[in-house]
């Protein structure tokens, strides 16, 4: 039986630049081989009216994400959050992150398994 989730990852996808730092930070932290890891960055090209486009990157926590429990227990941020070049990821209690979502648009809150 899985515990009720307490913590999540808040992503400000306005600022994710697609640098893929989170992927490698995760792979290093948990020793994942290439091709596996707790987070993957996706590229989304949105078509808008008047032949405009909008380029978005979005980190997605996979089935392998454990929210870096050994780190967060020590008061550290998860490896992906610490190293995020654009500082667009926040770790914290779900309620706190949900409140932060009111501060600006283009946010998504992930609650990994």
């Amino acid at each position: 039986m899985s515990k009720t989730p307490e913590f999540g990852l808040l992503i400000d996808y306005e600022y994710c630049t697609g640098c893929h730092t989170c992927q490698v930070a995760c792979a290093q932290e948990h020793g994942w081989p290439a091709g596996m890891g707790g987070i993957r960055v996706n590229e989304i090209v949105q078509k808008l009216p008047h032949d405009k486009y909008y380029l978005t990157y979005l980190p997605f926590p996979t089935e392998l994400c454990v929210l870096c429990k050994p780190r967060t227990r020590k008061g550290l941020d998860p490896a992906c959050v610490q190293h995020c070049m654009a500082r667009c990821m926040t770790f914290g209690p779900i309620e706190e992150l949900a409140r932060k979502m009111k501060e600006k648009p283009r946010m998504v809150l992930w609650v990994p398994k």
Partner: peptide, 10 residues
Amino acid sequence: QGRLCARALA
């Protein structure tokens, strides 16, 4: 300030 790129992390 604590950040690091994918290449350095590898």
